[in-house]
Design a protein around this nucleic acid. Structure first.
Lengths: 190, 190
DNA sequence: CCTGAAATGTGATATAGGTCACATAAATTA
DNA sequence: TAATTTATGTGACCTATATCACATTTCAGG
């Protein structure tokens, strides 16, 4: 399935755009390819795009003063990624985004998203529901982080994205769970 | 300032509704008052409303199998609260909402919100941006939970809502920070 | 197919925070 | 105002996870 079709199916799950509307909608997205390790957004950048993943896997992450990395999100196909704080508030990036594998994305600028939302009521509907779902997911993860121990969070993550197990180094999974790689390593042998 | 005016100012920050549009918008909200301790949403309920706080303070929280409570949100005036997972997905509540103080809210049903979003493009714009902001805030809190120790999270919370310090028992603040009340108690004497 | 780098496993030790138990203080309510 | 409940402080001890150090394995590029 090509990029346009993947986006179309994805959008259709949350909003009903006519074919013409979708063609117009799609015309604002720029297809881009990146190699494993390439950086899409780096701390301190101005951010004006968000990325819809077609193939491969991105991560969005934060590096603290001790150079420890925390992963906010793994972005698999049909997921969106950016530094949304920077994107929405026109501030510099504190979150970085890079490629865990070779990646194809559709890139949409902040200005174009707002234009689309203005011009096509159903586009705004789509983006509202996309974020609604993200909001609910973020709150679930918050609770899981407060309530569950590492083992449980690990099992939860693998249930949610089984592909990750073979796709990304365990150190990144640890950085998503918010534990050291050593602790994660000790989990699945006991 | 009365409820209608508080909501109007709040909405105007994110979307421009005409006076007529806003009157219509407002007509879907029901004003309700609750006493300290009253429960608005309780685990297992079907959820069909969200609440906009006019005065007082709500909390939304989760109780785990060990009867330990985790607070997702303190909802102060102009904040919204509900079990959004249950509300959006028409499932039973896993999150409860109750009153920390006497409270006045404006209640909006899920169906009415969707109706408003359909009929008034700017209403949909408002709700999209409301959730956008919530999403960004939730992700900030996720990072803080992974990156900062209790002391830092406590300071962060008090900077964000200084009112809380005198308004709610420390045990609730601990439940928001995700630590035991004993640990929190030990923080601000050392 | 070799070689260096990256990823992973594992022991020893340190520490933040949890849990339990009980004392004290503050705030409701009869 | 007394009685009762609720909130808070604090000691003693326990546990999950972090950190550091080093060994081993896997993998990508020349």
């Amino acid at each position: 399935m090509e990029a346009k079709e993947i986006l179309k199916v994805h959008v259709a799950k949350l909003a009903s755009l006519s074919d013409d509307e979708f063609d117009y909608f799609f015309s604002f997205f720029k297809k881009q390819s990146f190699k494993k390790g390439q950086v899409l957004i780096s701390e301190g950048d101005t951010v004006d795009c968000e990325y819809f993943v077609i193939s491969g896997c991105l991560k969005s992450f934060f590096i603290n003063d001790d150079l420890k990395m925390f992963i906010l999100q793994f972005a698999m196909p049909t997921w969106w990624a950016s530094d949304y704080n920077a994107l929405y508030n026109h501030t510099r990036a504190t979150i970085s985004v890079d490629c865990i594998t070779d990646v194809e994305v559709l890139c949409l600028s902040n200005a174009d998203r707002e234009k689309l939302c203005n011009e096509i009521h159903n586009a705004e509907h789509f983006f509202r529901w996309r974020t609604n779902k993200g909001y609910v997911a973020a709150n679930k993860r918050l609770l899981s982080l407060m309530n569950n121990n590492v083992k449980r969070r690990y099992e939860e993550l693998l249930k949610l994205y089984p592909e990750l197990y073979n796709m990304v180094p365990k150190s990144l999974i640890a950085a998503y769970l918010g534990v050291s790689r050593e602790t994660l390593s000790r989990l699945y042998q006991a």
